[in-house]
């Protein structure tokens, strides 16, 4: 390592200060406030009372019946809300990957001149507000919308396909909302891929499938993982698509939290606790993944 010039160390602290301030103000503080509130006592109709309480977590994990005086059982209501949200996010991620990977591959294999145009086209719809795009999708999918009217006028179906207010509509909405978050990181990874490697594999009689599995996928894996994370995590907390496309018939994690903070019930500690539990789950999954990657590398 090069020797440090005198004075470099004394510069280190002031130069790092902006970074620390950013992390402190924009990450540690808000998350800290959230974690703190989840351990406070609920004030009826919004706000908190500054005394320590675990009742928010108790409410999440234990079911004490309609009147709160039965023997505690495991609370399935919130677990099923989590399960449903995770499942929706998984499906949205898989859909994004199935469409996003070929798209990214296509763009990355275009001549350098036209790549910019393709990338530009991918981002164009995202200049429009998410709410508007979600409502527009509802217009397209509804019984009287162009999708169903088109299918009916082609004689493919007799009655409108019930798409709006179903889980399928939610998954389509999430897929549509987050697709570029899958395409762009995979594109970045594929663009760096050296296509001479594919030729070398072919020279050694590797089938196309083997080349993809053994050579391409391991090399672009970081892009795929980044894309999956960028789609999965926001899908988990989404509530526009479930509300507008799914008909808000069932709570998702996002709408459950929203109702606690903004609704008339105003149970802030419970809303904060749900958010903390969600964050913990995501964190555990990420750490487990990171560890498995490290183990793979050292093996």
């Amino acid at each position: 390592m090069a020797a440090r010039r005198p004075g470099e160390r004394s510069l280190l602290v002031p130069l790092l200060l902006p970074t620390w301030a950013m992390i402190g103000v924009f990450m540690v503080l808000p998350v800290g406030v959230m974690a703190l509130y989840s351990f406070l006592t609920r004030e009826f109709r919004g706000g908190v009372d500054w005394t320590f309480s675990l009742s928010a977590y108790d409410q999440f994990f234990f079911d004490r019946g309609l009147f709160g005086d039965e023997a505690p059982r495991l609370q399935w209501a919130y677990i099923s809300i989590f399960w449903r949200s995770i499942w929706q996010a998984v499906i949205a991620t898989v859909l994004c990957l199935l469409v996003g990977f070929p798209t990214a591959w296509f763009i990355a294999t275009r001549p350098a001149r036209s790549r910019g145009v393709w990338l530009f086209l991918i981002t164009v719809p995202y200049w429009v507000n998410l709410l508007i795009r979600t409502v527009s999708l509802r217009f397209l999918l509804r019984d009287t919308g162009p999708l169903n009217q088109g299918l009916m006028s082609l004689g493919l179906v007799d009655a409108p396909l019930p798409v709006v207010n179903t889980n399928l509509a939610v998954q389509l909405g999430l897929f549509y909302s987050y697709l570029p978050f899958m395409v762009l990181p995979i594109y970045a990874a594929v663009e760096r891929y050296n296509f001479a490697l594919s030729e070398a594999a072919a020279d050694l009689y590797a089938s196309r499938w083997t080349t993809l599995r053994e050579i391409v996928l391991p090399l672009v894996k970081p892009g795929i993982v980044a894309g999956c994370l960028l789609v999965f995590v926001p899908s988990l907390g989404a509530f526009l698509a479930p509300d507008l496309l799914g008909g808000a018939k069932t709570f998702m994690i996002g709408s459950l939290i929203d109702e606690q903070i903004k609704g008339s019930q105003g149970n802030w500690p419970f809303g904060a606790a749900v958010a903390v539990i969600l964050m913990t789950l995501v964190l555990i999954a990420l750490v487990a993944y990171a560890r498995s990657v490290t183990r793979e590398r050292s093996a």
Binding site: L66, R142, D143, T144, V164, N165, D243, G247, A248, K249
Partner: peptide, 30 residues
């Protein structure tokens, strides 16, 4: 309890929940 039970029955007939959209779904025929 009766209130809870009645709503559990009723929800099976419902297509969606929405306040801001309550006018629009009637106009569009959803």
């Amino acid at each position: 309890r009766a209130l809870n039970d009645m709503l559990q029955e009723a929800r099976q007939h419902w297509a969606s929940f929405g306040s801001d959209t309550s006018k629009e779904v009637l106009v569009s025929g959803d």
